[in-house]
Design a binder for these strands. Structure first.
Length: 593
RNA sequence: GACCCCGUAGCUCAGCUGGAUAGAGCACCUGCCUUCUAAGCAGGUGGCCGCAGGUUCAAAUCCUGCCGGGGUCGCCA
């Protein structure tokens, strides 16, 4: 339990007492009462809005209620002072022991510090991310969704939720046929029959050679090795299913390798084709039909757009408008096969049926137009019990010293995720992807990402972690026999930490559990990056005070007890950094090179 | 035309489930290395929070309407 939650509960108890004494009407809802650090540190340690949110329902004025409550809180354990301020805030100043005790808890918890039971007992959460089409290697845009999804999953787990990480393989549809044809071209090439764009078009009328990248060459060669020339002169009907499966398997292997290089893992890979083949689309849609959410109708063309080939046509439609969407959405193509949306409904229905009513999808921003209908669908298939949150990831602008790196997927020379990871390392890629909120565009400068300076937040944070351990190494020189085990640090006399900068640092550390909870509630892992940045800045700042005032250094020759206490503080900072970096999947190093 | 995202310091962005005097980095200016890592720190300059209304004790935050940038728009995935 964080310090803030602890005092929230103390405040609630005092409010109950006041209600019992007739000072407040019975049955008030304390749900909006919050306890947080005041914006200005000068105002105190923790602040509550209790009087302001309860004044109206209690039919009193905020300052009067605040005064009465503050009088009681002033007598609570650990409270040094309780003051009414502004329109009715109550600012509490807590005894240093309260904060020092929290530092002790952080040390004992180690990387698990900040873990909460916030999500314990709640519905398990399904986080779906990456879900790139298996038609080629991942590029940097995919990396963003991958990292955000992975970090969000870890964050939710830290907050006590049960989480399943899932990847939806879009292995059905026209794109996959194009992949198969493109692979077949490479197969012919491997057999000595290199195609040109013209000969490809002549041989496969109506099909374009979509995926021209070199990465399919080894797949074509492997196909030639395993099937020889057997497919060479067969008609497409014969080889298509074979090549399709072969190519998809090869692409998924490629993608999983790319993900592994980034340290991303999934618990479950679900195939779109398997969903369709298992009849789940029919099942899901039958359920929707039974509920009256499906009908045959004619859609209006979108206004303000020119669509030459628009023909009004009766279609099978999902009544998405009943669930907040703008128009009803088609489920069946004119050739009688399901639309992508229909399969996706079945997929989300399947997730819900597996027990995941709480679903999160991480998508690229180009899918923004799809959000409402999918939320509508989840709402419909779960009969209102489920909820879908969609995190849209904006573009990543890849830069090299401020200049855009050209990316052209068509020419087949787009910058792959693998290239970027090889150049700057997975930790850097991961952290950088989390330094912006998902719906803001992200500039990713390859040169800055490897710089060791304040420009590079990854370095700045890791540097602080390394510094904390560096202090311990130096302490070993001053006190060769000093026991620096975690147990010894936990047993340190923390009351020696009484400098303002030290107490500020402890308060920052103590804010970590609250940050985790807020970030988890908002489904926004990037918030932790900003918090870590602030914590680390405070640490560097305090550290540097030792330059001018040697008595503030972490290692104080001649005072082993003080040194031990300060090393405990440094370790506390390192603990929170490690705890945060673990959520991000980034290594916390003890030494920089 | 509709829908979604964005608009905060010269630049890149936090803050947005309403709270006190709106923050950080970069850039620019001024300081600090016989030193536990100066790979850093301290200070300064810099704001009609896109515009206009509304709700509220309280609005950068919520609502409405505009303006500007991006994305998407039946049988692509």
């Amino acid at each position: 339990m964080s310090v803030f939650k602890e005092y929230l509960s103390i405040i609630q108890i005092q409010l109950e007492v006041m209600a019992g004494a007739g000072e407040l009407p019975p049955g008030l809802d304390f749900g909006r009462v919050s306890v947080e650090p005041p914006r200005e540190a000068a105002h105190g340690d923790v602040s509550t809005n209790a009087a302001m949110v309860l004044a109206k329902p209690a039919q009193t004025n905020p300052r009067a209620l605040a005064t009465a409550l503050a009088a009681r809180l002033g007598r609570a354990e650990g409270v040094v002072s309780a003051e009414v301020a502004g329109p009715g805030f109550i600012n509490l100043r807590l005894a240093p022991e309260v904060w020092r005790a929290e530092l002790g808890r952080a040390l004992e918890a180690r990387e698990r510090y900040g873990d909460t039971d916030h999500g314990t007992g709640k519905a398990p959460v399904n986080v779906e991310y990456v879900s790139a089409n298996p038609t080629g290697p991942l590029h940097v845009g995919h990396a963003r969704g991958a990292v955000i999804g992975d970090a969000l999953a870890a964050l939710l787990e830290k907050a006590g939720y049960t989480v399943l990480r899932e990847y939806y393989i879009n292995d059905a549809g026209a794109q996959i046929d194009k992949l198969a044809f493109s692979t077949f071209a490479r197969y012919l090439e491997a057999l000595g029959e290199a195609l040109t764009e013209e000969s490809f078009a002549a041989r496969f009328p109506g099909m374009v050679w979509e995926y021209r990248g070199e990465y399919l060459a080894p797949v074509g060669a492997a196909l030639a090795r395993s099937h020889g020339a057997a497919l060479k002169n067969a008609p497409p009907e014969t080889w298509l299913p074979v090549v399709r499966d072969f190519a998809v398997a090869a692409m998924m292997a490629l993608i999983k390798d790319d993900l592994a290089a980034l340290g991303i893992r999934h618990d479950v890979f679900t195939s779109e084709r398997a969903i369709v083949a298992a009849g789940k689309v029919d099942e899901a849609l039958t359920a929707l039909e039974g509920a009256g959410h499906i009908y045959t109708g004619v859609l209006e063309p979108p206004k303000g757009m020119v669509l030459d080939d628009w023909e009004p046509r009766p279609q099978t439609l999902f009544r998405a408008t009943a669930f907040g969407d703008d128009v009803d959405r088609p489920l069946m193509k004119s050739d009688g096969t399901w639309t992508y949306f229909a399969a996706d409904i079945a997929y989300h229905w399947d997730k819900a049926r597996r027990g995941y009513l709480d679903q999160i999808d991480v998508w690229g921003a180009d899918h923004g137009g799809y959000v409402k209908r999918m939320k509508a669908a989840v709402s419909a298939v779960t009969v209102g019990k489920g909820a879908l949150d969609v995190k849209l990831c904006q573009l990543v602008n890849l830069l090299e010293r401020g200049q855009p790196v050209r990316m052209s997927k068509r020419a087949g020379n787009f910058v792959t995720l693998r290239e970027v990871v090889d150049e700057v390392g997975k930790d850097v890629v991961r952290f950088m992807m989390l330094t912006r909120k998902n719906d803001a565009p992200l500039d990713f400068d390859l040169a800055k990402a490897t710089e060791q300076s304040l420009d590079n937040p990854v370095f700045y944070v890791q540097y602080a972690h390394a510094r904390a351990y560096s202090a311990a190494r130096h302490a070993k020189e001053a006190f060769p026999e000093l026991d620096l085990s975690l147990a010894a640090l936990c047993a340190a006399d923390l009351s020696r930490l009484d400098h303002r900068g030290e107490l500020d640092l402890i308060r920052s550390i103590a804010g970590w559990p609250r940050q985790v909870e807020m970030a988890a509630d908002a489904h926004e892992p990037h918030r932790l990056a900003f918090y870590l940045f602030e914590l680390v800045a405070a640490f560097h700042s305090h550290w540097s005070k030792g330059n001018a005032e040697p008595n503030l250094r972490f290692v104080v020759p001649g005072d082993r007890a003080l040194t031990l206490a300060r090393l405990a503080l440094a370790r506390g900072v390192a603990t929170v950094i490690a705890s945060g970096l673990k959520v991000f999947g980034v290594a916390a190093v003890e030494e920089l090179r």
